[in-house]
């Protein structure tokens, strides 16, 4: 399981479109060895086919695709966009934080989603992800 390791966090990502934003976060999964390029393109295709339902909270997107699209390990990366991008979600646009989820089909997948959910259920943590430094962010990740 690879969960928001420092090398999987980009706090100054540049993206002008939802596709670029998804690729910015997806690239971090690929560079960490957790997923293939094909998985990143599957996340983009999923957005284009199914729309922005994965913008699941104000300013937060969680793009993902299927394990068989090219995931080696359950994983989460983060691209924080310098300029927020509208994904076309009525309630939660614009997106500032893009957490790319490498979906796995094992227990790690559930453990990782539980970690992410518990973390983001606390508004103080969301604020820190939006404005904090890498040191501050890695500090809250170590707490549990």
């Amino acid at each position: 399981m690879k969960f928001l390791e420092p090398a999987m966090i980009d706090l100054a990502a540049n993206a002008a479109t939802p596709e670029e934003a998804i690729r910015a976060a997806g690239r971090l999964l690929v560079e960490s060895g957790a997923a293939e390029d094909s998985y990143v393109e599957a996340m983009v295709a999923s957005y284009e086919a199914k729309g922005p339902y994965f913008v699941l909270a104000p300013h937060i997107a969680l793009p993902h695709a299927k394990t068989e699209d090219g995931v080696h390990e359950a994983s989460v990366s983060l691209a924080r966009l310098q300029e927020p991008v509208a994904f076309g979600h009525k309630a939660n646009d614009p997106v500032k934080l893009v957490f790319a989820l490498g979906s796995a089909s094992n227990a790690d997948h559930i453990a990782l989603l539980r970690k992410l959910t518990l973390l983001l259920n606390d508004p103080a943590n969301i604020e820190l992800f939006k404005t904090g430094t890498l040191d501050q962010i890695t500090a809250i990740l170590k707490e549990d």
């Binding site: 729309g51 969680l62 993902h64 979906s103 959910t117 259920n121």
Partner: peptide, 15 residues
């Protein structure tokens, strides 16, 4: 319910 049934809907289910 979510689009793929593996990520977003599981987070929703937990909450």
């Amino acid at each position: 319910v979510c689009g793929l049934g593996q990520g977003t809907s599981l987070i929703l289910r937990m909450n």
